[in-house]
Write a protein that binds this DNA or RNA. Structure first.
Length: 283
DNA sequence: ATGTGTTCCTGTCCGC
DNA sequence: TGCGGACAGGAACACA
């Protein structure tokens, strides 16, 4: 899935199509994704206006005029595809339904937003906007990495005493929101930290140095429109370009791009997932 | 309480 | 060209 930069890219692509627009019709084509979809979802969406399209961690949040918020998680393979957004578009301008098109939102403007998710690890829920922060999917999530609550002292305190590898700690959404396998690998490489190091045994100043590095990686990725890997595309169908910015992810066997480092990128497996690192400059 | 391994599901790619 | 296995951006859950 899309990690934070990809979800933010999707949000920016969808906002002009959805914000301020009413949903004329919602077509819910299967009863469940990762979990059952909320009861009566189509009826609860129909006629609602999207007041604002936001993001928290890897969740898209559509605040509706009905007082509810639509929560969307893209899982590993979820996409939000837009069609018919041109001025004066008609229903016939929409492409035929594809396999795994699970939820289709037809906006009053004529634009259509289609949630497509082959692997179905994605999720949707509807909940009262006033109680959004208490929703079970959101309540335990840590600070936004690009926000003020994520800072050096915070990360040092949260990693202190932790025996798990720092890679696993940064993937833990309760510690910091929105990071996934790609950007954790990239951030640890830029910070020169070995992903296998126990989180609590890294010098505080090195942990502190991770904070601006994480912010920089995410900001660069957002600026590039995210990464397009496999089935992920931006909502406008264009590719994101950040995959050209990867220094280690997916680059096993290639020379380490760090200045003055003659190492080779290696792939290892940590808790069942690939980690890419340069054993020479990451300590 | 922590840390680790398994699981959900489908598609793609690579080697034989 | 077909077939089997590995692997893919997540994260809840079960278990040590």
């Amino acid at each position: 899935m899309p990690e934070l930069p990809e979800v933010e890219t999707v949000r920016r692509g969808l906002a002009p199509v959805m914000e301020g627009q009413a949903i004329a019709r919602a077509d819910v084509r299967r009863p469940d994704l990762r979990w059952p979809l909320p009861q009566g979802m189509a009826a609860r969406l129909t006629g609602a206006r999207v007041e604002r399209l936001g993001r928290r961690s890897k969740y898209l949040l559509a605040d509706l005029s009905t007082g509810e918020t639509l929560i969307v998680h893209l899982g590993m393979s979820g996409r939000m595809l837009v069609s018919g957004a041109r001025l004066g578009a008609f229903a016939r301008d929409h492409p035929p339904a594809h396999a795994h098109d699970h939820v289709v939102l037809d906006m009053k403007s004529g634009a259509r937003v289609t949630f497509n998710d082959a692997r179905r690890f994605g999720a949707m829920d509807l909940t009262a906007t006033a109680a959004l922060d208490a929703h079970w999917l959101l309540r335990d999530i840590g600070p936004e990495p690009l926000g003020n609550a994520f800072h050096e002292d915070y990360l040092v305190a949260r990693l202190k005493g932790r025996r798990m590898p720092v890679k696993a700690a940064l993937l833990d959404q309760r510690i910091v929101a929105g990071l996934g396998n790609i950007y954790v690998c990239e951030a640890l490489h830029r910070a020169g930290i070995d992903p296998r190091r126990r989180a609590g045994r890294i010098a505080a100043r090195r942990v502190a140095a991770l904070v601006p590095v994480i912010r920089a990686v995410l900001e660069e990725a957002i600026a590039a429109g995210g990464s397009s890997l496999r089935d992920y595309r931006r909502s406008d169908g264009e590719l994101g370009y950040f995959q050209h910015g990867f220094r280690v992810y997916g680059r096993e066997g290639m020379p380490c791009p760090a200045a003055g480092c003659a190492g080779t990128v290696r792939r290892i497996v940590q808790s069942g997932r690939s980690t890419f690192l340069c054993p020479r400059c990451q300590r």
